[in-house]
């Protein structure tokens, strides 16, 4: 199965990855090849087969509602690209 330039552009927007013209051409062939590989799936007979999202048939454990975390803002913000007054800064968000 091939993937169109439009699909690649759309997916790149969803994934928030900038791609330029030259990259799109390369991706058309690379992603197309990967999708060809993946298309073998369509041949499998999966009628009445339950999807498996996890290898072990386990159930979720739940945590007691107790505060276990302490304030580590200083340590976390020491490795942040931009902070001020304890806030993470990003270019202005327009609602």
């Amino acid at each position: 199965m091939s993937i169109s330039r439009e699909d690649i552009e759309k997916v790149a927007v969803l994934a928030r990855i900038r791609v330029d013209e030259a990259q799109i051409s390369a991706l058309e062939s690379d992603l197309g090849n990967i999708l060809n590989l993946v298309d073998e799936l369509s041949a499998a007979d999966t009628a009445n087969i339950e999807p498996l999202s996890h290898p072990l048939d386990a159930v979720q454990r739940l945590r007691t509602d107790e505060v276990t975390e302490t304030n580590q803002r200083e340590a976390f913000q020491a490795i942040a690209p931009a902070t001020e007054d304890g806030l993470y800064l990003v270019p202005r968000v327009i609602e």
Binding site: E84, L87, Y88, L89, R92, V93
Partner: peptide, 9 residues
Amino acid sequence: FHGMTGIDL
């Protein structure tokens, strides 16, 4: 914040 938005999580 100088044209930036602050994020509180």
